[in-house]
């Protein structure tokens, strides 16, 4: 009985040759699903942009975008001796230096973020980074004397600047390094150029640590971005969907140093001068890539307490933190209508 029933179901469901042919003929032509991917090296990482199939100006608009990034790199890079920041780092302790509008705008933003994060975000810790050997990518534990000297050459309160762009350093050896915010700033500035050309759908990435989503993604449910596990690199801690939103990730994968049997990453707490250990990675979702980039660094330094305090005071900011105390379960802080966080899809 059961057998007969199964057979009749199969017969009922099996399409005839005629039906198959009719189905085949009625299928619409497949719509092009070829998205254009444009990439270029800048700021020591890969800048990448993904544009929708119907966008025929993907490359020309990317060239404009990359020109913006190149220009900002020529201003912000500490690895170029002729950059505006290098000149500033070289001269501003001796005399006042005029800076251009981009650098001034960034300094003003950094000052605000420094204040709002209780000093956890600080672009003036270049001397500390140099002292620990992270700048030269040869980390080593500094002597306490060297660390004390570096701490005296760090701190945002040791910069003086005004709205005319006149900048002075109040300590010798002070060095600004925009590594924790520069890529996000470049994404935002470049995205403005992309939007101005009428493009509403794209995903921009700088070194995979800063991303900016334009529009709602290929299926209208938000751009789907994975969060790679910082230790188990072939796994994810989760995924996020971004609706015209930005993402910034900080982690200690790139460089590390071992102190008394414990491994520390390259991100330093500007307040103590020592590497941070309690946080393994932080992803921040925010309205702008600049903000997301900087806050990821700040929360890495300031930990869960700072993230909770900041997110409750700034609705729309979301932090996804993987703490040293629990590598299997990320902590999510804050919420936004423009993002969806999913820890089930890994």
């Amino acid at each position: 009985m059961h057998k007969v029933k199964s057979k009749s179901i199969v017969q009922n469901w099996e399409p005839t040759r005629r039906e198959l042919l009719a189905r085949w003929r009625s299928q619409p032509m497949p719509r092009s699903s070829e998205w254009t991917r444009v990439s270029r090296s800048a700021m020591a990482c890969q800048f990448e942009a993904i544009f929708a199939p119907e966008c025929e100006i993907a490359v020309s608009v990317s060239e404009e975008y990359f020109r913006v990034v190149d220009r900002l790199e020529s201003i912000l890079s500490i690895f170029r001796p002729d950059s505006e920041v290098s000149v500033l780092n070289c001269l501003a302790a001796e005399r006042a230096v005029y800076v251009g509008p981009e650098l001034l705008a960034l300094l003003e933003l950094c000052e605000l973020l420094h204040r709002e994060t209780g000093g956890a975000f600080d672009v003036t810790s270049g001397a500390l980074s140099k002292c620990w050997g992270f700048e030269a990518r040869r980390p080593s534990i500094p002597s306490l004397e060297a660390l004390a000297v570096a701490r005296n050459s760090s701190g945002f309160h040791r910069i003086s600047f005004n709205r005319q762009g006149v900048v002075s350093f109040l300590a010798t050896g002070l060095r600004i390094n925009f590594g924790g915010i520069g890529k996000g700033f470049a994404l935002d500035q470049g995205a403005a150029r992309i939007r101005a050309r009428g493009i509403v759908t794209a995903l921009l990435s700088a070194g995979n640590s800063s991303m900016l989503a334009l529009g709602d993604g290929p299926d209208g449910h938000g751009w789907n971005v994975g969060l790679r596990h910082p230790i188990f690199k072939n796994q994810r801690i989760g995924t996020v969907r971004l609706h015209s939103y930005a993402l910034g990730t900080s982690g200690q994968e790139e460089q590390s140093i071992e102190i008394e049997g414990l491994r520390y990453g390259h991100i330093l707490d500007p307040r103590s001068g020592w590497p941070v250990r309690s946080v393994v990675s932080v992803t921040v979702l925010a309205h702008s890539a600049t903000e997301a980039d900087a806050l990821a660094t700040a929360f890495f330094v300031g930990g869960k307490e700072l993230a909770e305090r900041y997110c409750s005071a700034h609705p729309g900011i979301v932090a996804i933190m993987l703490l040293e105390s629990d590598l299997s379960r990320p902590t999510i802080i804050g919420s936004s209508d423009q993002v969806e966080v999913n820890f089930g899809n890994r």
Binding site: S33, E34, W35, T36, R37, V38, S39, R40, S41, A42, A44, C45, Q46, E48, I50, A58, V59, S62, E63, F66, R67, D70, K183, L203, S205, A206, G207, N208, S209, S210, M211, G217, P218, D219, G220, H221, W223, N224, V225, G226, L227, R228, P230, K233, R236, T239, V240, L247, T249, S250, G251, Q252, E253, E254, S281, T283
Partner: peptide, 27 residues
């Protein structure tokens, strides 16, 4: 200017992550 721009194509799906975020990956 210096440098090269790479242009390729991809089949972008909504159901799968398009990129994976991580700490900065060097060029």
């Amino acid at each position: 200017r210096n440098g090269v721009t790479s242009v390729s194509t991809a089949a972008v799906s909504g159901s799968q992550p398009v990129l994976d975020a991580s700490a900065t990956r060097r060029a």
